[in-house]
């Protein structure tokens, strides 16, 4: 049982949780994730470890309410518990001094990219962070990213805040204008990561993407998270979650994420705890 110590709303449907998990807090590295199961009948779901405090024995997770399970998680409050948390899983990000690094985060991917931005900065890189969101309300972690980036550019799809458009377009402009960028990290929706990969490919800038494959165990036992990278098949939970974005077969990833859609719809017919309470009242 892992106690939730605090909860903060970052944007509509996006929450930050600080959770007790001492052994994970002391062993995690940037880029790694946990697999958790909220309650006995629940699914095992992967979430990036956004930050940790080894002394307090806590980890931070940022969770976006997407389907049934994440909605349930987001309905939890400080004082509630999460049944199982396994981690840290996956390989840590290759943090090096590349020179100038552009970190492109989209949607909740901005949460996933935060620890990497921080680590890249600590490694001596000049870090340009492109923080993309749907609209003003959805911009998350602006202050935190500001603190650990040399440059922070916020984009919104509808132009309600920052620059109108996508992070990938801004990045393209920079590269076309001849900005020296040595390495790019892209984390967000699959289509966004594919767009970034296509932007950097002609400029031959090394680019990694963090794949949010469907997972069950997270320990290399089920193969449900397999991804095609170049001509090899890899397990995202063990060999990833980050891979060379120029080699990832993104089409395959798009098809895979939709596989359990119907089942998710059925799942939505389960009532969330607060809905049950409302009914009772």
């Amino acid at each position: 049982m892992h106690k939730i110590l605090s909860k903060e709303k970052l944007a509509p449907k996006i929450y930050r949780f600080t959770v007790e998990a001492p052994p994970i807090a002391s062993s995690r590295k940037p880029g790694q994730f946990v697999v958790l199961r909220e309650f006995e009948e629940g699914e095992r779901l992967p979430f990036t470890i956004v930050d940790s405090d080894p002394e307090a024995g806590t980890i931070d997770l940022i969770i976006q309410a997407a389907g049934y399970s994440t909605q349930r998680l987001c309905a939890l409050d400080a004082g509630d518990t999460i049944l199982d948390i396994l981690g840290p899983l996956g390989k840590q990000t290759d943090i090096e001094n590349y020179g100038t690094v552009a970190c492109v985060g989209g949607g909740v991917g901005t949460a996933v990219i935060y620890p990497i931005v921080k680590a890249m900065k600590e490694a001596g890189n000049y870090v340009i962070t492109l923080n993309g969101a749907r609209s003003e309300d959805f911009v998350i972690l602006e202050e935190e990213l500001e603190e650990v980036s040399d440059e922070l550019i916020v984009t919104t799809d509808d132009g309600s805040y920052g620059i109108e458009g996508f992070g990938s377009t801004v990045l393209q402009k920079m590269l076309e204008e001849g900005r020296e960028i040595d390495f790019v990290v892209a984390i967000g929706p699959v289509l966004m990561m594919r767009a970034v990969a296509e932007v950097t490919r002609p400029f031959d800038v090394g680019t990694i993407a963090s794949l949010n494959a469907l997972m069950v165990d997270g320990t290399g036992m089920c193969g449900g998270c397999r991804v095609t990278v170049g001509d090899e098949v890899k397990f995202a939970c063990v060999d990833g979650p980050e891979f060379d974005a120029h080699l990832v077969d993104f089409e395959e990833q798009v098809a895979k994420l939709g596989y359990y859609h119907e089942e998710e719809d059925e799942c939505r017919m389960h009532k969330l705890p607060h809905e049950l309470e409302q009914e009772k009242a």
Partner: peptide
């Protein structure tokens, strides 16, 4: 890697460990 291909480990884990065959469990 097409949709609809899985390892026996994944299929059996969903059913046995995650009890997908039982109504009240939500793993698909």
């Amino acid at each position: 890697n097409l949709n609809g291909v899985s390892s026996a480990n994944e299929f059996l884990t969903r059913i046995n460990l995650m009890k997908a065959y039982r109504e009240e469990y939500i793993t698909p």
